[in-house]
Simulated scan of single mutants.
Amino acid sequence: MAGPDSTSESLDPEQIERMVDDALGAIAAAADSAQLKAVRQTHAADRSPLALANHSIGSMPKERRKDAGRLIGRARGRVNEALAARAAELEAAELAARLEAERVDVTLPVVEHPVGAEHPLTALINRMCDVFVAMGWEVVEGPELEAEWLNFDALNFTPDHPARFMSDTLFVDPPSGHTIMRTQTSPVQVRTLLDRALPVYVVSPGKVFRADEYDATHLPVFHQLEGLAVDRGITMGDLKGTLDHLAKAMFGDIRTRLRPHYFPFTEPSAEVDLECFVCHGSSVGDPERPCRACRSEGWIEWGGCGVVNPRVLVAAGIDPNVYSGFAFGMGVDRTVMFRNNAPDLRDFVEGDVRFSRSLVGGAR
Rank of each mutant, 00 (worst) to 15 (best):
A75P: 05
C291R: 11
F355A: 12
D333S: 11
H43R: 07
V104H: 01
H161M: 10
W149H: 11
P13Y: 05
A53F: 02
A101M: 04
H223M: 11
L108R: 14
F157K: 02
F251R: 11
A31G: 15
A23E: 01
T122N: 13
R295S: 08
G69S: 15
V202F: 05
A163C: 04
A23C: 05
D286Q: 13
D231R: 00
E148W: 01
L194A: 03
E301H: 02
F338A: 14
T179L: 15
I27P: 03
W149E: 11
L108G: 06
V20H: 01
A123P: 10
G303R: 07
P162G: 11
R76H: 06
Q41Y: 02
N309A: 07
I72M: 05
G177M: 07
L219C: 11
P109G: 04
A31N: 13
W149P: 02
V278K: 14
V360Q: 07
I234H: 00
M166H: 09
N340I: 09
A92Q: 15
V208Q: 10
P287E: 04
D333I: 09
E144P: 06
V188Q: 12
V360K: 08
T183F: 00
Q41S: 13
D253N: 13
E288T: 15
L50P: 03
I300G: 05
T7D: 09
